[in-house]
């Protein structure tokens, strides 16, 4: 049994035809189910909990990366299969999972290739893709055994569970987080930064800084401030992926 969670913006008129096409295709494939629109007024965790009691085994998120990021945090505690139908907007997660936009995603959904994937956790908040440190004067402590410091002041830091960094996708099922550190971009356009990026893997990362530094979660654009502890959660999520997935 399928349960569909729609992004609140899909109620707008301009998405009417796209939503109609998706629903028609879902009916054709025989995987249609109950639909619920996300909104601030609804307690999604409670709603999902009730639906699971009724026998729902697959929750399908219809929206973009932000919708996926929001819903992942709400359903991480439940043992369900998660599907995704991307609809216009920022859809990097769908690209990594090999899911095409719109009604074509319904075919991926019906083929049900299920992968068990890791979930990252930052200060008790789950994330599926990656996070970035915006102000870069921070120190990283990895696996309680070594520290990473920058010799230059500005380094771009990215910590990823599932991401595609410089055309190399990370593995979301290796039980490790990928850390990428890149040097500052040159202020002169003709001077290119030729330094190779630092790439490490760790299970447990602690970010500290003298000043409170914002950390941006790429899933839903949420900002969390340092000090922060980032770990691989013991919870895994089962996600329906496409054949063209990047990992």
């Amino acid at each position: 049994m399928y349960y569909y969670l729609y992004d609140s913006r899909l109620a707008e008129k301009k998405y009417g035809s796209t939503v109609a096409k998706i629903e028609t295709r879902l009916t054709d494939l025989g995987i249609n189910g109950k639909i619920n629109h996300l909104s601030f007024l609804k307690n999604i965790q409670q709603v999902v909990g009730e639906e699971l009691k009724r026998g729902v085994k697959t929750i399908v998120i219809v929206g973009d990366d932000k919708t996926f990021g929001q819903v992942i945090n709400l359903i991480a505690d439940f043992n369900v299969v998660v599907g995704f139908i991307p609809v216009e907007g920022k859809n990097d997660i769908a690209r990594l999972l090999g899911i095409p936009e719109g009604e074509k995603a319904c075919d991926v959904l019906s083929s049900r290739i299920i992968k068990k994937m890791d979930l990252g956790e930052i200060n008790g908040y789950y994330f599926f893709t990656s996070l970035e440190v915006i102000n870069h004067q921070v120190a990283l402590e990895c696996d309680n055994s070594y520290f990473i410091n920058s010799e230059k002041k500005e380094l771009a830091i990215k910590i990823a569970n599932l991401d595609c960094y410089q055309e190399a996708p990370t593995q979301p099922d290796d039980n490790k987080l990928d850390i990428f550190l890149t040097g500052p971009k040159s202020t002169f356009f003709w001077k290119k930064n030729t330094d190779p990026p630092t790439h490490l893997k760790a299970k447990n990362i602690r970010i500290t800084s003298f000043k409170s530094t914002p950390i941006l979660l790429n899933d839903d654009g949420r900002i969390i401030k340092t000090p922060a502890t980032i770990t691989i959660s013991h919870k895994k999520i089962k996600v329906i992926v496409g054949k063209n997935r990047l990992f």
């Binding site: 055994s145 070594y146 520290f147 990473i148 410091n149 920058s150 010799e151 230059k152 380094l155 410089q166 055309e167 190399a168 550190l181 890149t182 040097g183 330094d195 190779p196 990026p197 630092t198 790439h199 490490l200 893997k201």
Partner: peptide, 25 residues
């Protein structure tokens, strides 16, 4: 890119016990 697991770049300083099971640069 897939072969090398760990790269410590020129502007990075690592302090402590660095233990890994893959290739390191």
């Amino acid at each position: 890119a897939g072969e090398t697991e760990t790269v410590i770049g020129p502007s990075v300083k690592v302090e402590g016990d660095f233990v890994t099971e893959g290739n390191v640069v």
